[in-house]
Design a protein around this nucleic acid. Structure first.
Lengths: 351, 351
DNA sequence: TTGTACGCGTTATCAC
DNA sequence: GTGATAACGCGTACAA
């Protein structure tokens, strides 16, 4: 095994650089640079090029991209900021992003914020220090200091999953409005009338749009929800969902159905219902949103709305590439379709 | 909104650098460097230090860490290589790693390999080009060309979840042997005799140790498994688990229990059993490994072995820090305890 | 305590 | 087509 001792300031022992390849091939190192960089000015004779390439390969030359970044001011790295990678919605987005950007030579720097704005600001500043070429922001608030910061720092930003109020940043989001409308229509069509909702914070476009999807459809049908049928979670997690549902069930008769802002919250709600002695879906219906893995296997299988997360990631990456280019197009918001997925957690009361 | 147009070679417009805050504070930029870098040689008068700090803050100075890396040959970035971030075992590990390394100023570069060795080698080479200070490898094979490559490149490597045969790299792994032994003992104690197993590839320490855990206990009890009760998956995924279980159920009477190499595989197995008209756990018992989120909610709740993934991440990060230091300790393998979690997917045949 | 000077490995822009 | 050379922004040994 080779020694991995490295002195504080010395380069990695034996790291071969352009100059090494140059002396070994008997040409100037700028020539080597040109050979190894497809698309550099000034053509090279095929003979020299071939020779240099051979030498480089033999010496195991690996370009030092830090030095290149120093010169070009582009690191070919992009940040991805999420609340918590353990939330199953994020990994597929990362996969989609990588699918598009890895072949282009980009690397992805992941930053978890743990739902903490201060941490998030710190993450952005560090990414700025690292000269990331762009940032994917999955935590976007309707009014977002992080977005402003990125604009100040002049870092290309693409929102994923959520969008700002002013829509001044490119974004790829799910059609939360349409998705929740479809779901709510189904809930009504199946005869539920006493409906409760567990909502996300209304400073998030997802939170607000999903709530609008619900209330729009209720309004269309001449319904409004009483105060005590509406509760909020601070984060969309299982624990918060459970707590929220407990509140809903605390006083009086339980509702016929609870529409939850997402799957994790819905799972918490199912737990709370069960703890309260209610059978889902016989006594109460539950729905989620996202169709995360395994919710088709839980008891009962969860009715939800599916979004194509990988596609969101891919599209966000395309948008990023366009936005990083010198002639960046105007910001636009891309909506990816949602699809209603009916499962046993919500039953047809008419049936 | 500020313009994000940037010319090919010019620095980000208006990016303030060391020299800028130097002229603004009326000192030389080397002084600024010393002020802003805690722990640099040569002390600075408090007055000057305070002044410089104030100016830096006012100008919104952000150190250019690329330039710093160029000088120090350390990027304060580390790679994390996984097969697929969508596998729920990885995110908690990332969280644990970040918990320890973010406060130290490190950034994490995530690389998905998609189970492809060529891709993986490419990822390593790119990370090397980026001068990562270290790599966490979650894909470690018993004999691993990736590990060798990192040794050649002189990149500190810490294995997570798995270990090489020769144990020549620091590693943090779960006690797969003990965990699977405990599980198998329980299976036997509950009266199962006709047992089947779905195993992972035997070129992985996890695959091999878990199988050894099973077979050790069976041997202790004078049992061996017939050929047709042993099947393998290529990757530990739901789909492969389902396929493998279908093979097991294809001919003859089903076994009393299937011990699966991990939870995803177990979930696939449950699907296959159900498709074959078998009730789990009445007709057949199923067990997994990992205790990933939601397996306590599926139908039936999955008996499994829990490992503390976040702790594995944290420990790996500590090991990495130690290993990156100039006086690196000898490689050692840390084992994190496993804990048996009994749920309804496996029942007591004696009861 | 502070200023000087050099180099890290590349890329880009000159000459030739 | 190729060589020479000047940046890029910072860290630090050394001089003052």
């Amino acid at each position: 095994m080779s020694s991995s001792k490295r002195s504080k300031t010395a380069p990695r022992a034996g790291r071969v650089k352009l100059a090494d390849v140059a002396t070994a091939s008997g040409v100037h190192y700028s020539t080597v640079s040109r050979v190894l960089r497809p698309g550099s000015k000034g053509r090279i004779s095929d003979a020299v090029a071939e020779h240099v390439r051979a030498v480089a390969r033999e010496l195991g030359y690996q370009p030092n991209s830090v030095a290149a970044s120093m010169r070009t001011n582009s690191t070919y790295s992009i940040g991805l900021i999420v609340h918590d990678m353990s939330d199953p919605v994020y990994p597929p987005i990362l996969t989609g992003i990588e699918e598009v950007l890895s072949p282009q030579g980009f690397a992805v720097l992941v930053g978890n914020t743990g739902y903490d704005l201060a941490v998030e600001m710190d993450v952005v500043n560090r990414m700025a220090s690292r000269l990331v070429d762009g940032i994917f922001l999955a935590t976007t608030r309707l009014e977002d200091p992080i977005v402003e910061r990125c604009q100040d720092l002049d870092i290309p930003l693409v929102s994923v999953l959520r969008q700002t109020q002013s829509r001044d940043t490119p974004a790829v989001i799910n059609d939360c409005l349409g998705g929740m409308q479809a779901l709510t229509r189904q809930v009504l069509a199946w005869g539920h009338r006493d409906i409760a909702v567990i909502l996300a914070p209304q400073n998030l476009s997802t939170g607000r749009e999903r709530w609008r999807g619900i209330s729009d459809v209720l309004s269309e049908n001449g319904m409004t929800l009483p105060e005590h049928r509406i509760v909020h979670v601070e984060h969309m997690s299982v624990d918060e969902g459970e707590r929220a549902a407990r509140t809903l069930l605390a006083d009086g008769a339980p509702p016929e159905a609870i529409i939850c802002v997402n799957d994790l919250v819905a799972i918490g709600a199912i737990r709370a219902c069960r703890a309260a002695g209610l059978n889902v879906p016989r006594d109460i219906g539950i729905s989620g949103y996202n169709d995360i893995p395994l919710v088709d296997m839980i008891d009962p299988p969860l009715t939800t709305v599916r979004m194509n997360l990988k596609e969101i990631g891919r599209t966000a990456a395309e948008l990023m590439l366009a936005h990083m280019a010198p002639d960046a197009p105007p910001s636009r918001t891309v909506r990816i379709d949602a699809e209603l997925v009916l499962r046993a957690s919500l039953r047809n009361l008419n049936g």
